[in-house]
Amino acid sequence: MRLLSILILLAGAWLVPPVAAQSSIDVYEFDSPAQEAVFRELTRELRCPKCQNQDISDSNAELAKDLRDKTYEMLREGNSKQEVIDFMVARYGNFILYKPPLMASTVILWAGPVLVILLGLVVILVRTRRTRRNDGDELSTEEKKRLADLLNKDKES
């Protein structure tokens, strides 16, 4: 009986995950629901610089946690949404925004897909016109003579 209770205790200890493996949940307390709504919007609009394809609300990276904490701290100090965004852009650049503003440095992000599609259409049009022209080419005089000779040989046989 004593051996059974020791085995159960060991099995239970083996099944419990280590403390480092347990994830922590960030709990933020806000002065008003409006402040919490601004926090939620900001954490969805700001991209995690480490993860690159996740917003800071979804990322588990330490940097994302630091950015969430800094956003919370700035909102608690009374900074507006735009002030928080300006701070993050000044620190991490426009890459931190999921929707970067239209500027000379980001114009390729906005115009790139349209330019690629237009370039593809131009290539398709040029290739189809080229093949149409080649299909309608007339035979040279030498080719006509050779064709006539072949047809005459066929008639004679």
Results as ranks from 00 to 15, higher is better:
residue 2 R to P: 00
residue 3 L to V: 07
residue 4 L to V: 02
residue 6 I to H: 05
residue 7 L to W: 09
residue 8 I to H: 11
residue 8 I to D: 01
residue 8 I to Q: 12
residue 9 L to A: 10
residue 10 L to N: 03
residue 11 A to N: 13
residue 13 A to D: 04
residue 15 L to M: 14
residue 17 P to H: 07
residue 18 P to V: 04
residue 18 P to W: 09
residue 20 A to V: 13
residue 23 S to Q: 15
residue 28 Y to G: 00
residue 28 Y to T: 01
residue 29 E to L: 15
residue 30 F to L: 05
residue 30 F to P: 01
residue 30 F to V: 09
residue 31 D to W: 07
residue 32 S to L: 07
residue 32 S to T: 15
residue 32 S to R: 10
residue 34 A to L: 11
residue 34 A to H: 10
residue 36 E to F: 00
residue 37 A to L: 10
residue 37 A to C: 02
residue 38 V to G: 05
residue 39 F to C: 02
residue 41 E to Y: 08
residue 42 L to P: 03
residue 42 L to E: 06
residue 43 T to C: 09
residue 43 T to K: 04
residue 44 R to F: 09
residue 48 C to Y: 04
residue 50 K to F: 14
residue 51 C to Y: 01
residue 51 C to E: 07
residue 51 C to W: 02
residue 52 Q to T: 05
residue 53 N to E: 10
residue 53 N to T: 07
residue 54 Q to V: 00
residue 54 Q to S: 11
residue 54 Q to L: 15
residue 54 Q to F: 10
residue 55 D to E: 12
residue 55 D to A: 00
residue 59 S to E: 06
residue 60 N to S: 15
residue 62 E to Q: 14
residue 68 R to H: 05
residue 68 R to T: 02
residue 70 K to A: 06
residue 70 K to Q: 13
residue 71 T to Q: 00
residue 71 T to G: 04
residue 71 T to C: 08
residue 72 Y to T: 01
residue 72 Y to N: 03
residue 73 E to L: 11
residue 73 E to T: 12
residue 76 R to I: 12
residue 76 R to S: 08
residue 78 G to F: 10
residue 78 G to K: 08
residue 78 G to S: 08
residue 78 G to Q: 07
residue 81 K to I: 05
residue 84 V to W: 02
residue 85 I to E: 03
residue 85 I to A: 04
residue 86 D to C: 03
residue 87 F to L: 10
residue 89 V to F: 01
residue 91 R to P: 00
residue 91 R to T: 06
residue 93 G to W: 10
residue 95 F to D: 09
residue 101 P to S: 01
residue 102 L to C: 03
residue 104 A to G: 10
residue 104 A to P: 04
residue 104 A to N: 11
residue 105 S to K: 13
residue 105 S to N: 13
residue 106 T to R: 01
residue 106 T to S: 04
residue 108 I to Q: 12
residue 108 I to H: 11
residue 111 A to V: 15
residue 112 G to P: 05
residue 112 G to K: 12
residue 112 G to H: 11
residue 113 P to Q: 09
residue 115 L to S: 09
residue 115 L to I: 12
residue 115 L to A: 13
residue 117 I to S: 05
residue 121 L to H: 06
residue 123 V to D: 08
residue 125 L to I: 14
residue 128 T to A: 03
residue 131 T to G: 02
residue 131 T to H: 10
residue 132 R to D: 06
residue 133 R to W: 11
residue 134 N to D: 15
residue 134 N to H: 14
residue 135 D to G: 06
residue 136 G to I: 14
residue 137 D to F: 13
residue 137 D to H: 12
residue 138 E to V: 06
residue 141 T to I: 08
residue 142 E to N: 07
residue 144 K to L: 06
residue 145 K to V: 03
residue 148 A to L: 13
residue 149 D to V: 09
residue 152 N to M: 11
residue 156 E to R: 08
residue 156 E to A: 08
